[in-house]
Amino acid sequence: MKELDPFVLLAVFQEMLGPLLWPLVALVVLTAVAFVTLLVSERGVRSRRMLLAQAIGLLGGVFALWVMATVSSSGFTDAGGPADWVLIALVCVLGAAGTAILVYTVAGWVGHGRCPLCAVLRPKS
């Protein structure tokens, strides 16, 4: 790869995802920020919550593979060479990691009632 051009990538993703693109980007960015903030505020990783998040993340990896197979009109026996296994692993890992981070973050903020929305919704005693 000689030069990266994010604008070409952006143009193609815009055509591919249409109105879903920016909400998805927002979800990724918000989750990342919320995750890092949570790690800082809790001064580390809570192992039990992470274990649960990783377990659910596995389902996320499977779901990502299912989505990929569906949108590409593929079956589950179509892998034909090493490049295919790399792509399958990539999709699975990204799906699993993304789901795990999302679950860990949501559980962390909701569980502690720290999110602004939770504070509003929490019944007053």
Binding site: L4, D5, V8
Partner: peptide, 8 residues
């Protein structure tokens, strides 16, 4: 799938 793209 998030593959790289390069300059047009």
């Amino acid at each position: 799938a998030g593959m790289l793209a390069t300059r047009s």
